[in-house]
Computed example of a mutant assay.
Amino acid sequence: MSRASFSARRMQGLSLIELMISLVIGLIILLAVVQVFSASRTAYQLSEGLARVQENSRFAMDTLQREIRMAGHFGCTNDQAHTLESLSTLQSTLDGAANPGLDFMRSIQGYEATGTEPGKTLTLAATPATGGTAYTPALPTAISSALTNRVDGSDIIALRYLMPDGVPITAIGGTIQKPVYTFEAARWSVLRSGVTNPGLFGVADCGSATVFQASAVNATTGTITFDTVKLNGSRTFSNGYMLGQAMLYRAESAVYYVGYDATTKQSSLYRVRFGAAPNGDLVASSPEAMVEGVENLQLLYGQDRSLGARPSGYIDRQGTAKAVQESLPSDIGLAWRRVGVVQVGLLVSSPDPAAARQADSNAALVSMGVTYTAPTDGRMRAVYQTTVALRNRLFGN
């Protein structure tokens, strides 16, 4: 065979059958690659969704546990201990009736969303409704107006306490009724605890505590002056305090709830804080998103067996905020002071769709006896529950 003939045979190329076989093999390989990619993407979405749900739930639980445990903190003894001997040992110059956000005589106050008691079923919408749910007890207008984006069907809790870090009082001027407290000016940052211009404070020793609004604060000289102005009205101090024992604290009042952001289309755990500047008016902060992905909050409260003047130390009553409210109608404040445990249930979802098949498991979502029917939007959802003991209400501490 000549060299020219041999070269011609090599340049003939592939036949049609060979080309079709090659295309089929390539298509099979491509389909396999696509299938592997799709499976990997689904696995990644599930893993990412689960990770975000677990992360957000941990942050939300940590936030609520830390805040709920502080309820009732009024210095070296709690509000429950202060009121054992006499109601006069725990005082607030703030008008809690006129300013429900500053009702420091109730360190903890729950609001149960109508139709969300144990045994009920709650249907969740892809875009939740806001601002329409009724509560028991009724949500005060001042609080309702501040929680503009609250999600329907979710419980609300208000917490009030003195911050854990205080500063010793170094001098006391004025009168018992209208005192002027002096503290070490270098410790002002400790006393204000992150608030730019705080005006709500508490003074406490192991015998009594008083919450008040300062009429004037001088951070340079380290003085806090009390007078009958603004939120104090005509109320004055009835308890005197002694050097070496009394401490000053910033007073904190915050409401926690589930809210919805129409811009991000995301439900979150929110906080609104109530406060006032020295000699200033009551101010509610803008709703502050704490943890995203929280769709629903359910709360149950454990009360002391004894609803009389002295607690027994046994928590054997459990129920909703409505049940607490009805347990002692003659003294609602005492009923809430007998709350020693709060059970928290959170429904948390992933920020993005995780997998379509995840919707199949939503029928099993139950929180504090409430069964959820979730929308089929492909989001990963899970329920997390915990029990929080109010350490400042543990009898004997």
Rank of each mutant, 00 (worst) to 15 (best):
L200N: 02
Q213K: 07
S189K: 11
Q177K: 14
I156L: 12
C206S: 13
T221L: 13
D205I: 08
W188V: 05
S208A: 15
S189C: 05
Q213E: 15
I176D: 15
A185D: 01
I156S: 10
L139R: 06
S144W: 08
Y181T: 01
L191Y: 06
P164L: 05
L200V: 04
P137R: 01
T136W: 11
T210R: 09
N149M: 04
I156K: 05
C206I: 12
K178I: 11
L162Q: 09
G207W: 02
V180N: 03
W188G: 00
T136F: 14
A158Y: 11
Q177L: 14
A219V: 03
T221K: 11
Q213M: 09
L147S: 03
T225G: 02
S144H: 12
T223I: 09
Y161W: 13
V211R: 05
L191F: 05
I176E: 15
S154Y: 10
Y135I: 00
L139Q: 06
W188P: 01
V195P: 01
L159C: 07
V195Y: 07
Q213F: 10
L200Q: 02
A129K: 11
T210W: 07
Q213C: 07
A185V: 01
P137S: 08
T182M: 12
T141G: 08
T141I: 08
G132I: 10
A142Y: 12
